[in-house]
Design a protein around this nucleic acid. Structure first.
Length: 255
DNA sequence: ATGGCCTTTATCAAAGGA
């Protein structure tokens, strides 16, 4: 089973790339963030023509998540219970006994901003909800754009980013608290190239200079980490014409 | 080096992203 996360930064603009990527890579499940469309505008027909189904929770202009898959899913949840939040950032679906939770964690803007407070509150609510989800679903995948670089090696210049949003200690602690629930960062189960990142700023020729951060993650419950055979970042997608600023991340599970 | 780019909605820029 091949499961992928990709922040596409507008499904409308990136649709040709998403279709191309689906046809080329044939994942079982592709989770998208920042679709930036209302549900009535979701390009279901084009995705169906590629042989896939889709569930989605979108809004105008901002945020929005979707899960595209070959199989139909059950048990959909599109918000964190017990969190009052109009922003569309969560989509949980089930395939057999595998729970897939696609998330788009708030960016936070800067550590001084109200958006940072919202981010931290959001992460606390996510953690509480995940405790329940893990009890209900021992085979669980939590994946998406976390907007957190967990370790020094996940940042091109840790000294420059120390204490800054995406790499501040409270955010890194919140990430660790998710790990402490019994989740594993699948990327670090395997030897990886140095300076592996999933996001590069559009500016400053950042991609060409590999000035990036690893902020998109696939966390696996213990049951699934045992059957994980790879986790890879597809840098080729960042080289596409008119690319997203994020690259897709893929895990393979022997299920 | 604090900004350069991209997307959206809406004008003759602004907001948000990370």
């Amino acid at each position: 089973m091949k499961i992928v996360t990709w922040n596409v930064n507008s499904i409308k603009v990136r649709l040709p790339q998403v279709i191309h990527w689906l046809m080329t890579n044939q994942p079982d499940v592709l989770c998208l963030q920042e679709t930036k469309l209302q549900d009535e505008n979701f390009p279901l027909a084009e995705i169906a023509a590629a042989g896939y189904q889709a569930s989605y929770a979108g809004q105008k202009t901002y945020n929005g998540v979707a899960v595209i898959s070959k199989r139909s899913c059950g048990e959909i949840i599109s918000s964190i219970p017990d969190l009052e939040d109009p922003q569309k950032r969560v989509l949980a679906v089930t395939y057999g006994d595998v729970r897939v939770i696609c998330i788009y964690v708030p960016n936070g803007e800067s550590v001084e901003s109200e958006k940072y407070q919202y981010k931290m509150k959001w992460l606390t609510a996510l953690n509480l909800w995940l405790q329940d989800e893990l009890h209900k679903h021992p085979k669980l995948v939590l994946l998406g754009d976390f907007n957190i670089a967990p370790e020094e090696c996940d940042v091109h210049d840790p000294e420059l980013w120390r204490g800054k949003v995406l790499f501040s200690q409270p955010e890194r602690d919140a990430f660790q608290e998710l790990i402490n629930l019994g989740l594993v960062d699948s990327f670090r189960l395997f030897n990886q190239p140095d300076k592996s990142y999933t996001w590069w700023d559009y500016r400053m020729m950042a991609f060409r200079r590999n000035i990036g951060m690893r902020i998109d993650h696939i966390l696996l419950s213990n049951d699934l980490s045992k059957v994980c055979t790879s986790c890879t970042i597809d840098k080729e997608a960042r080289r596409f014409e008119r690319p997203s600023d994020h690259a897709p991340v893929t895990v393979e599970l022997t299920l």
